[in-house]
């Protein structure tokens, strides 16, 4: 049982997420207990508006939890400064970079910001880490291209390379496959799988590609109205968790193929 010996990277303790406006609290989900281990690829799925983004925002310290705690590498988020956090957690967001007048190399190199000096000069070590990130995401040929010249799929790889260059043991991606065609959706998720195995990084992503996630992920977090549950895809299927994910009038989960089918 080597699995249990793996280092725990992220853990939530009775986490309640939602929004607090003045004295009124809007609870999105409560009692969330998830544990992410080193080298795992984890898919977060759930219907639109169920609170996937709120959960990711809470895990990345963009918003405060209503209750409970998020612990990354043994330290509670509440006690971590943003600069410290930037060395253990990197993100790929749904938004595009504000300026695309950067070369691929320059953009990926911005991932080294937490480590560089006051003016942001790259050391030889920084450059070799950036080069490695370019290599791992297969975008070395694009190195000197401007970001406005890239396709959506290429840009997504660049943003992933930037997160790799930040040299953290946890990467969180918010819907990395939106706007991509079927081939590139599979490509990006397979790339994440490869990276988690090769680099030992823990990679958590939210996605609507449940079919792909079931095939690729080590573990999945499923958000539904009643609960937030995390387990291996096989266990989740046998527990029938996916059947409760959506209203049953349109699509149904087929346990044999592990995918959703449109009801005729």
């Amino acid at each position: 049982m080597t699995k249990t010996a793996q280092h725990t990277v992220l853990k939530t303790e009775n986490l309640t997420i939602g929004y607090a406006l003045k004295k009124q609290q809007t609870v999105i989900a409560s009692n969330i207990n998830i544990t992410l281990k080193q080298g795992e690829l984890i898919g977060l799925v759930g219907a639109n508006g169920i609170g996937k983004s709120t959960l990711l925002r809470t895990l990345t310290k963009v918003q405060q939890p209503l209750n409970g705690a998020v612990v990354i590498n043994g330290v509670s988020l509440a006690e971590t400064s943003y600069l410290e956090l930037s060395k253990s957690l990197s993100v790929v967001l749904t938004e595009q970079p504000a300026s695309k007048n950067l070369t691929v190399f320059e953009l990926v190199a911005l991932g080294r910001q937490p480590y560089t000096n006051w003016v942001g000069n790259l050391s030889n070590n920084d450059i070799s880490i950036v080069e490695k990130a370019l290599l791992q995401t297969n975008i070395q040929p694009l190195k000197n291209k401007k970001c406005y010249e890239l396709s959506d799929g290429q840009l997504q790889k660049v943003m992933i390379a930037r997160a790799l260059a930040q040299d953290t043991n946890l990467i969180i991606l918010d819907e990395p496959t939106t706007h991509l065609d079927m081939y590139h959706k599979a490509y990006i998720l397979k790339l994440l799988k490869k990276l988690s195995k090769e680099t030992g990084k823990t990679i958590l992503f939210s996605s609507h590609e449940i079919n792909l996630a079931i095939q690729l992920c080590d573990k999945m977090i499923v958000m539904s109205h009643s609960q937030v549950i995390s387990n291996t895809p096989c266990n989740l299927i046998s527990k029938g968790v996916f059947n409760e994910l959506f209203p049953e009038d349109m699509i149904a989960f087929d346990e044999k193929t592990g995918s959703f089918r449109v009801k005729q």
Partner: peptide, 9 residues
């Protein structure tokens, strides 16, 4: 962008 900048510390 500001959100990425924040994630970079």
């Amino acid at each position: 962008g500001e959100n990425y900048a924040k994630s970079l510390g």
